[in-house]
Design a protein around this nucleic acid. Structure first.
Lengths: 248, 248
DNA sequence: AGACATTAAAATGCCAGACAATTAAAAAAG
DNA sequence: CTTTTTTAATTGTCTGGCATTTTAATGTCT
């Protein structure tokens, strides 16, 4: 575990990299205590603030947790799926918004991933997952529901579908894709008319899942993808013509 | 943008959260300069080291970059797919190793995701992608190839398959799943015999992709998944009986 | 006036030392 | 033996400073 004082990188970044490497390689294991900040400062021959900056970097990635007091210190953190979700969602959202990812590309990715879950979910979903899906469909049909609430319900519905596959790794991977889409989805304000259609397609999906029919689930998802993309295009077209009107 | 000095959380964590929120909400945009460390310290009524710890947290997530000198400072960073890959791979690897995710679960997720790319890749892959796949298959057939090199080549092959879909979001999501599997795959040391079979299946996949045949690609991937899992089981069983022998 | 060297200013990077807050263990008191 | 007090270790935070880097401004010479 060494650092290079002549490198162009920050010392704190180098120290963080060195410790991260130890964790990834398994030489520092879960719940193991790191040396105290003073000891690390001595070891790397830097000051305590510099060590602290390095530890904060690791903490930002949930790789360590710190505890105060006599038996306190920095401990290797067991990275939980729940912790990773948030980071995944934040990262995926920013990737989409900062790289001008088009609605089509994001939508295609999302439904491709979701279709990957469909057969598993049709086979394994518990009554709980199905109940969640039905409940959200019901909520989506209620009049007076705001666009934001409709979108949130949509996310919950799709997450239930994904979680129904009963594979935590899949759920983790999909969380980012589904939730990061929400801001983009919000650009399409759901009219009463399009909600009706979406609810019908959601019902089709839930029925297929309930029947354990993988093919039907997949084709229902296909229909939903097609409809969503058409909707987006019509919104974009409508906006474009409106802009033209104004500039004319 | 406020912090609560009575909160149990670190001040630096609160400040990082506050700034992150500004970035995610789009109130701080790409390449915008943040106030200097001293100004932030004044604003949040904390010391400069505390502000610095907060900024290092954000830097660890690639949300900001810093620059020294007269016109330097912290700038909102454009999160690139390449930057996100590494974090995604690290996070996914640790999730698998720290949560005792079984080979079966990880394998299932990986191939489910990969099948999601298959139809798109069959339709859109460029000659480049195909050439990469063929080259890796050839490499895998060479005698004297180490297990590590074979695994690395396997990863490259599958990444070419995924990238062939021509969807950056999909590639990003799958990078973690595919690469994080490598340590688990390494547990199955590939014998000369199993390599033969895997190469045959890889060839089947490449042929299907070249022919633009989505169904054939999918079934070839299915065959590969089945074979991989059988291989893993046989290895586990063999190890178990060996252990029994020793203890007996 | 223009080119080059010097200086100044602003910002981050880093350090030393200190004190506060927290926590658990050790010691003392009952 | 139980409860209370003390002590020690550790992280959290602050103050103040110096080093380094980079740009802009200034001055100087041709």
């Amino acid at each position: 575990m060494k650092i290079d004082p002549t490198s162009s990188k920050d010392l704190s970044a180098q120290i963080a990299d060195a410790i991260r490497e130890e964790i990834v390689a398994g030489r520092l294991i879960v719940d193991q205590r790191l040396p105290s900040e003073s000891e690390l400062a001595d070891y790397f021959d830097v000051s305590r603030p510099t060590v602290r900056e390095a530890l904060k970097r690791l903490a930002a990635q949930s790789l360590i947790r710190t505890q105060r007091g006599a038996t306190g210190g920095a401990f290797v953190n067991r990275l939980r799926f729940e912790d990773a979700y948030d980071q995944q969602v934040t990262t995926a959202s920013l990737l989409l918004s900062m790289n001008a990812v088009s609605f089509d590309v994001a939508c295609e990715a999302r439904y491709a991933l979701e279709r990957a879950c469909a057969p598993l979910s049709a086979a394994r979903r518990t009554p709980d997952h199905l109940a969640t899906m039905r409940a959200e469909i019901h909520r989506q049909g209620q009049p007076g529901l705001t666009d934001e609430a409709f979108c949130a319900s949509d996310v919950t519905f799709h997450r239930a579908l994904v979680d129904g596959a009963g594979n935590k790794v899949l759920s983790y991977q999909l969380a980012g894709a589904v939730e990061a889409m929400q801001p983009l989805m919000n650009m399409i304000t759901f009219t009463a008319r399009s909600r009706e259609e979406i609810i019908a397609l959601h019902t089709k999906i839930a029925d297929a899942i309930e029947a354990g029919n993988a093919d039907a689930t997949e084709s229902a998802l296909n229909a939903l993808e097609t409809y969503t993309r058409e909707l987006a295009h019509s919104v974009v077209t409508a906006r474009a013509s409106k802009t033209k009107e104004k500039t004319a």
